[in-house]
Structure formats: C-alpha cells, structure tokens
Amino acid sequence: MASELQSARKTETVFRTENLNIYYGDFLAVRDISIEIPKNKITAFIGPSGCGKSTVLRCFNRLNDLIKSFHLDGKLFYHDQDLYAPEIDPVEVRRQIGMVFQKPNPFPKSIYDNVAFGPRLLGYKGDMDELVERSLKQAALWDDIKDKLKAMGTDLSGGQQQRLCIARAIAVQPDVILMDEPCSALDPISTLKVEDLLQELKEKYTILIVTHNMQQASRASDRTAFFNVEANAKGQRTGYIVEYDRTEVIFQSPKEQATQAYVSGRFG
C-alpha cells in the first residue's frame, strides 16, 4: 500500500480536477473547475473577492469537510487517487497536504512545540530537535529565534508568526503546501522574505497559493489561474475559472479580455 502511494507521488501532475462544482447548501459557490496542478511548481489563484479561491483551495486538503453545509460533485484526483472517494480519510489527506492560512495562527505553545506538533501526531521517531531546527531553517526563521525556542509562538511578530506556521506545515514533510493569502497580514519586507522562501520550497514541495497581490503572483508563481464571479438568474454569485495558464501568458498575453483587465488593474 505504502509503496503504491509512494510511486503514485511520482506522477508529474499532483492534482487533477474534472468538472468540480462546489456547494454550500443549495448555493453553488464555484462551478466547473477542471485544472491540473503540476508537481514542484508554484500555482497561484487570483481573482476578485468572493469568487471562490479559498473555497477551491480548501477542497484540496478536504478542510471544507469541517463546514456542515459543504458538498461537491465532479472529481478531484490527487496523484490518480480520488480524494473524495468514500474510503479516504480526510485526516490522512491533511497530513500529506499542508496548509498555511491567511491570518498567522500559531498555537499558544512554545515555538518548539508548534513545529513539533505535527511530527508528534505522526509518532515521529527520529531526532525531533534536528527536525525542528531543519524546518525552522527551511522557513528562514531559525536565525531570528534560535535562542528562544521555548518562547511562545504567539509572542512573535506577525511576519515571524507566519514563517513559524510555514515551518510547522513543512515539519511533517508534506507533498503539497496550500497557502491562502499567506502575506496579506504582513509588511512588505516580511512578504518578500516569504516569497523568497517559496522559491526554495518549490524544490521539494508543490505549492498552491491564493493571492490578491498581482505582483506577487507574477513574481513568484509558475502557473496562474484567474477566477471570476458571475451572478446567475437567481442572483447567486458563482465563481469559475476564466483562464489558467503559465504565469507569463496570463500576465503578458492573456486570451481573455477579463483577465487582461484584471491583471492590469482595470477591473470592475
């Protein structure tokens, strides 16, 4: 079983969706998503507020399962494995597919315990100190805090907290990292640090990032999906993907008028 999945992880396409429709109760939040997310690349989701970027992102690690009214139809494959097949345990999914949230959300525990949280859950037997150090280094936080690992994670600055959350997510060595506007609560310098970090991380991980920052998407990502939202006859505002392509294409020669308008800031 394990070897099967390990080999499955070798496919070059990490996620593939087929006609995904996502609902909250009767409300169709996002329709008809069919995309492929390549391995070891950074894929950015951009689009106006409320078009369903977070909703789609949270489908990839089944975090939407926590919302009672949520359901979807269509298919979502993770390395050829149907992620919503009945025998799949969402808890196990989230161990492979980490997530970094918009608002930094460290646990009210020490920095060390924050990073060690995931590995401990998994019953990690190796050298924990080493793993914590490695994760913090990867998250470019080690130099800031190496003398105060016992300090509360919640006492760090916002930018440091977010990097701590990234360290926490990569400590379990996930396959994919989902990031929902990870820089929106950060100042420009911290933002640049996180962006540099992304470039390093993509060597090992596949990254999906939602952002409202056009420059960030064009600077940092390899692929970009532009989302938009349209009201239907009943007045429900349903999101969909207008265009999905290599980032240069989206920003320099998009096929759609709406994409062109959005990326150049002439939207609405």
Partner: peptide
C-alpha cells in the same frame, strides 16, 4: 517527497480499527 520516517503518513485510506479512529 516524503521521507521514510513518515511511513504512516502514506496511507490515506480510512480504517475504522486504527487506534486513532477508535
């Protein structure tokens, strides 16, 4: 890529008899 240290993480199938689920 998952390191072998996290071998347990590779099985995503639900098992109702696993100690955690129980």
């Amino acid at each position: 890529m998952a390191s072998p240290e996290f071998a347990t993480a590779l099985n995503m199938k639900r098992s109702s008899m696993s100690p955690r689920t129980l």
